[in-house]
Every structure is written in C-alpha cells, then in structure tokens.
Amino acid sequence: METIKNAANYVSESIQGAGATASKEANKNVAKDSNANLTTRAQAAGDAVSDKFDEQTHNRKADVHEHAAKH
C-alpha cells in the first residue's frame, strides 16, 4: 500500500514540477519582453525566480517518492 502511495505522490510532484517549469518559462519571456513596462518585467523576473525554486522543490520531492516506491 505504501508503494502505491509513493507512486501517486511521485506523479503529483512531477506534475506540479512541470507546471512550475512552464510558469517559469512564461515569466522569463515576459521579463525579456521589451514591449512590457518595467514594473511588469520586474514582477515577472521575480516570479520566475520563485517558480524556479518551486520547480526544484517539486522535482526533489518527486525523486524521493520515486526512490521510496522502488524499495
């Protein structure tokens, strides 16, 4: 039963990590957009940093759950 739980958590964390990656990339594009105003670009850059942190956190958790599901 614990293996199933770990596998489900792995999938969940992987999906959340992918979502954070997509958000990070979108924010990076906004931050680079010379047509956007400075405030918007600065906010997008900050959000990209936050998304990168979330991405790494979810990917680490996914790795832990994947390892636990295998053992």
Rank of each mutant, 00 (worst) to 15 (best):
I15F: 14
I15E: 06
I15W: 14
Q16P: 09
Q16A: 13
Q16E: 13
Q16N: 15
Q16T: 11
G17D: 06
G17T: 06
G17E: 05
G17N: 10
G17S: 10
G17V: 06
A18P: 03
A18G: 06
A18K: 12
A18T: 15
A18Q: 09
A18V: 08
G19D: 14
G19S: 15
G19H: 14
G19V: 14
A20I: 10
A20V: 09
T21K: 12
T21M: 15
T21V: 06
S23M: 14
S23E: 08
S23L: 15
K24Y: 13
K24E: 13
E25H: 15
E25Q: 12
A26G: 09
A26F: 14
A26S: 12
A26H: 14
N27F: 10
N27G: 07
K28M: 13
K28C: 10
N29Y: 04
A31N: 10
A31W: 03
A31S: 06
A31Y: 02
A31G: 08
K32A: 13
D33V: 07
D33K: 14
S34C: 07
S34F: 02
S34W: 02
S34R: 11
S34N: 11
S34Q: 05
N35V: 05
A36R: 11
A36G: 03
A36N: 06
N37L: 07
N37C: 03
N37T: 01
N37I: 03
L38C: 01
L38N: 05
T39V: 08
T39K: 08
T39M: 05
T40P: 01
T40H: 09
T40Y: 00
T40V: 13
R41P: 00
R41E: 00
A42W: 00
A42V: 02
A42D: 04
Q43C: 01
Q43M: 09
Q43A: 12
Q43T: 12
Q43Y: 00
Q43K: 15
A44P: 02
A44E: 02
A44I: 03
A44T: 03
A44Q: 06
A44C: 06
A44D: 05
A45C: 04
A45M: 02
A45K: 05
A45N: 03
G46T: 07
G46F: 00
D47T: 09
D47W: 00
D47K: 09
D47L: 10
A48F: 07
A48Y: 08
V49F: 00
V49K: 13
V49A: 07
V49M: 03
V49H: 08
V49L: 07
V49W: 06
V49N: 09
V49T: 13
V49Y: 05
S50P: 00
S50V: 04
S50M: 07
S50H: 05
S50G: 12
S50F: 07
D51E: 11
D51T: 01
K52T: 06
K52S: 05
F53W: 02
F53G: 02
F53K: 11
F53R: 11
F53D: 04
F53T: 14
D54W: 13
D54R: 15
D54M: 14
D54Y: 13
D54F: 04
E55K: 13
E55T: 06
E55W: 11
E55P: 02
Q56K: 09
Q56D: 09
Q56E: 11
Q56Y: 00
T57C: 01
T57A: 03
T57L: 06
T57M: 14
T57V: 04
T57I: 04
T57Q: 08
H58N: 06
H58D: 03
H58R: 03
H58K: 14
